[in-house]
């Protein structure tokens, strides 16, 4: 009985020693890399935003100049999302929105899109999707330039009827054999633009937090 107790205690202490050692190593690495990780994450985010909002259009800290938008039917979102605001010399220049097209061929398609202050689209990008590879995935920029077809489009020029794929009598291209995916994307972008029209004023409001960080 004593033997068992001793073995139990000994083993436990041994293991504790090793785990304390391990935790220490981990902790120090964590602290050493924490800032670098934050920086890389921000850089990556900025890279994505830059694709649809060129750096020339803003001089503010766009990563921090955000507005939380609650779930919205027009955006297709079901929770809070962030809108990033671009300002040039204090003037509102563009806003980056997140939107979800719920009716892709195989589920939701998550988009981000930039709308300029004048209501023109700065650009659209697909963040995630589950469309059939080789068929519906031409909405990705890496697969096809199709998504660039949205650049510069606005509801001022295209009326509701135009926000459809050509097969349905609209203005947007599609690839034969895969019409559901572009339909979903076009529809979602149009709705996001409507949202922008309706909420334009609210979107650019400088909230207190932003003021603080801007200082």
């Amino acid at each position: 009985m004593r033997r068992i107790a001793r073995s139990t205690l000994q083993t436990a202490v041994n293991l504790v020693f090793f785990s304390v050692l391990a935790t220490a190593i981990l902790a120090s690495t964590y602290f050493l890399t924490r800032d670098a990780i934050k920086k890389s994450e921000d850089a990556e985010k900025l890279k994505l935003i830059n694709q649809i909002v060129p750096p020339a259009l803003f001089d503010n800290d766009i990563i921090r100049d955000t507005l939380s938008i609650p779930a919205n039917e027009l955006l297709g979102t079901e929770g809070d999302t962030l809108a990033y605001r671009a300002r040039l010399k204090g003037e509102d220049s563009a806003v980056v929105l997140e939107s979800i097209a719920p009716d892709g061929y195989s589920g939701r398609i998550r988009l981000i899109l930039a709308v300029r202050a004048n209501g023109e689209l700065g650009g659209v990008r697909v963040v995630t999707h589950k469309e059939t590879p080789g068929l519906g995935d031409y909405i990705e920029l890496t697969k096809s330039p199709w998504i660039k077809g949205f650049d510069g489009k606005s509801r001022a020029v295209y009326k509701d009827a135009d926000w459809k794929v050509k097969k349905d009598g609209g203005q947007f291209d599609y690839m034969a054999g895969a019409t559901i995916t572009p339909r979903a994307v076009v529809k979602a972008v149009n709705k996001a633009l409507i949202y922008f029209e309706q909420n334009r004023d609210k979107l650019f409001v400088v909230n207190e937090a932003q003021k603080e960080s801007a200082k």
Partner: peptide, 30 residues
């Protein structure tokens, strides 16, 4: 390393090393 806790200790060390590598990559090869 006593035989009874050989595997846990090995795994622990491997896990620590992997996490370190993960942090480094996260920081410098995002």
């Amino acid at each position: 390393v006593p035989n009874e806790i050989r595997i846990p200790v090995f795994i622990l060390i491997i896990a620590v090393l992997v996490t370190v590598v993960q942090y480094l990559m996260n920081a410098y090869m995002y």
